[in-house]
Amino acid sequence: MTDTLNIAVLMGGWSAEREVSLMSGAGVADALASLGHQVTRIDMGHDVASRLAEAKPDLVFNALHGTPGEDGSVQGMLDLMGVPYTHSGMVASVIAIDKVLTKQALVPHGIPMPGGRVVRSADLFEGDPMARPYVLKPVNEGSSVGIAIVTADGNYGSPIGRDVVGPWQEFEELLAEPYVRGRELTTAVLGDHALGVTELRPKSGFYDYDAKYTEGMTDHIFPAEIPDAITQACMAYAVEAHRLLGCKGCSRADFRWDDERGVDGLFLLEVNTQPGMTPLSLVPEQARHTGMSYPELVRQIVDEALRDGAMTRARG
């Protein structure tokens, strides 16, 4: 049992994932209180540094999603303040939230990811950047925010219409990737081991933001009903990506698997360094299926952060 600590839970913020972060933070704060810790809940605003200085926490539990809590900004601030915190550090966060940098870090080490390139949104109105079907997504967002699947018979037009609603209206640049048909798989990593593989089956459309966070819109199959070779590959790739990126605490690796191609059809899409901790989130769900309660999951994340902080102070 960890000694009683003063822990600040950072949540909310101003990203597109604010509401999810508030739910994650509330769950984490309740779990920490149940473990006997003193908890300060902070809905992050631009005065976050002064609020943290006032709270004087022993540790920050980072329950933020998206920018600036997941892109290295908050991590850099906490490093300067000398306050230990959960989850990944600044460098890992900067790389993992950027889908292009993630490819550059992982693909040379044998982790399969879809090819792709960054395109100017304005150029999409002149013609397709690659053969359809393909996927367009923001370079620096999570939770399937702003994803569009462009198909030959879709409603976006050919070329994409300037007035059609889509991520090209919100972002100047987008990452274009070939569409990988098949099944949606995800693997949580806690510390240095994978918890398992979940298959996500949206009841309509694809696994977008609404499907992730609206109860009843997606079936979660755990353990995934897939061949053992695919399960082992997902878990091995997830752990290796966690290690290569320098992730801490927990992360979640998302995959697409073309089940007509065997292991050759498995592609890692992204690594989430700040996975959701809501009642519908995948990391707590996988932990629960392996016999770990929600408070125990939170405790393990806190314990790793404390060990990492102690090592950092020893090196300093």
Rank of each mutant, 00 (worst) to 15 (best):
M130S: 08
P84Q: 05
L80M: 13
P68I: 00
E54R: 11
P108W: 14
L80D: 15
L124Q: 04
F125R: 14
F61R: 02
L80G: 13
F125I: 14
G110Q: 05
A122K: 14
Y85A: 13
D71Q: 08
R120F: 04
G69E: 02
H65F: 06
V74W: 02
V48M: 15
I97Q: 12
S121P: 09
H109L: 14
D98R: 08
V74C: 09
G69S: 06
L64T: 05
L64C: 04
M113D: 09
S73I: 11
V74I: 15
Q104P: 00
M81S: 08
V118A: 01
A63I: 09
P108N: 14
G115H: 01
A49M: 14
P129E: 05
V118W: 01
T67V: 15
Q75A: 08
T102K: 00
A96P: 02
M44P: 13
S88P: 05
A49T: 13
H46G: 15
L80I: 15
K56P: 02
A122W: 03
A55P: 10
D98N: 15
H87S: 02
V100R: 04
Y85M: 12
V100F: 08
S121K: 00
D43N: 15
K99V: 04
Q75I: 01
R51C: 08
D79N: 15
M44N: 10
A92T: 05
M130L: 14
G110F: 11
G45F: 07
G72I: 12
T102N: 02
M90T: 11
L106K: 10
A96Q: 02
G110L: 11
L124H: 08
G76I: 06
T67H: 09
I111L: 11
S88F: 01
K103Y: 07
R120M: 05
L59K: 03
V107K: 13
G69V: 03
A55I: 05
D71K: 00
G45A: 14
Y85V: 11
I95C: 02
A49C: 15
G110P: 15
D43T: 11
D98T: 06
V91N: 11
R51K: 10
S93K: 02
M77G: 15
L124C: 10
M81I: 04
D128H: 10
D79I: 02
M113F: 09
L101E: 09
R120K: 08
H109A: 11
